[in-house]
């Protein structure tokens, strides 16, 4: 009988499920890992096992990946866990099996469905990160805090932290993932902190604009409209390169 492991939608959750799947000695072909979402469809002739996230088990899986294979393979699997695609859990499981079997060469085994799926997820994540590095907009609040809101498909908030704290080391800024209700906060000279689901209220953080904020927003809108060459108008291309979903919080499209 097939065992379906239901895990939390996080890297720790998926790695815990992988640990349990190995531990079950049920045979990999008879195991399936699935992200636990409310209202999922059950299949017949399967046993559904809920996997509570166990940090220690997850660390064990991560450690053996790093030590027995290498950090690159681990990072490649870990970052795929940020994807919005719920099929990611089983693909990561299959890729882990393959990785222990063939070592670091797994990264080149593009003809394997699990490997190519993970590559695709990572590409999507990298592209979204690249987009948000550019399309994210800060507004300056009265208390000098820079606040940005984003609504990414993938869970990329923590992957943006390095870039922006490197770019603005002396600023206090916060980036809010509106879709997942999580927040990244950077204070001058301190490491970045993350706040998860229920611990903060965006409305409380959002306050009045600083004195010059409106002026600068208007200036930027002026700039964007005047830098456009009217003779070359091509809104289709614009929509292709800057899809509508990114425009929600962009100053120039307000």
């Amino acid at each position: 009988m097939t065992n379906v492991f239901l895990c939390e939608d996080s890297a720790d959750g998926i790695f815990t499920a992988i640990y349990n799947a190995y531990e079950s000695k049920n045979g990999h072909a008879n195991n399936h890992i699935q992200v636990h979402i409310p209202g999922y469809n059950r299949q017949l002739f399967c046993e559904y096992i809920e996997v509570p996230t166990d940090y220690e088990k997850a660390v064990k899986v991560a450690r053996s990946l790093r030590q027995k294979i290498n950090g690159e393979v681990y990072d490649w699997l870990f970052s795929a866990a940020a994807s919005y695609d719920l099929e990611k859990a089983d693909s990561i499981y299959r890729a882990v099996i393959l990785a222990f079997h063939m070592g670091a060469g797994v990264l080149n085994h593009l003809t394997n469905p699990a490997v190519s799926h993970i590559c695709k997820l990572n590409l999507h994540i990298d592209n979204e990160i690249q987009h948000y590095k550019g399309f994210l907009r800060f507004v300056e609040l009265k208390n000098n805090l820079l606040l940005a809101k984003i609504r990414p498909k993938n869970n990329i908030l923590f992957l943006l932290a390095d870039h922006f704290s490197d770019r603005y080391p002396d600023e206090n800024f916060a980036i809010a993932d509106v879709r997942r209700n999580s927040l990244l906060f950077h204070a001058k000279g301190k490491p970045v902190t993350f706040t998860g689901k229920t611990d903060f209220d965006l409305n409380r953080i959002e306050g009045e604009y600083s004195e010059n904020e409106q002026l600068l927003q208007d200036l930027f809108k002026t700039y964007v409209s005047s830098i456009t060459v009217k003779e070359r108008s091509n809104p289709h291309l614009q929509r292709q390169l800057l899809p509508l979903r990114f425009r929600e919080y962009m100053t120039e499209f307000e």
Binding site: K133, G134, F135, R232, N234, P235, L237, Q238, L241, L242
Partner: peptide, 9 residues
């Protein structure tokens, strides 16, 4: 990094 795209793409 591209920060925006104008109406001319």
């Amino acid at each position: 990094i591209c920060h925006s795209f104008g109406a001319d793409g």
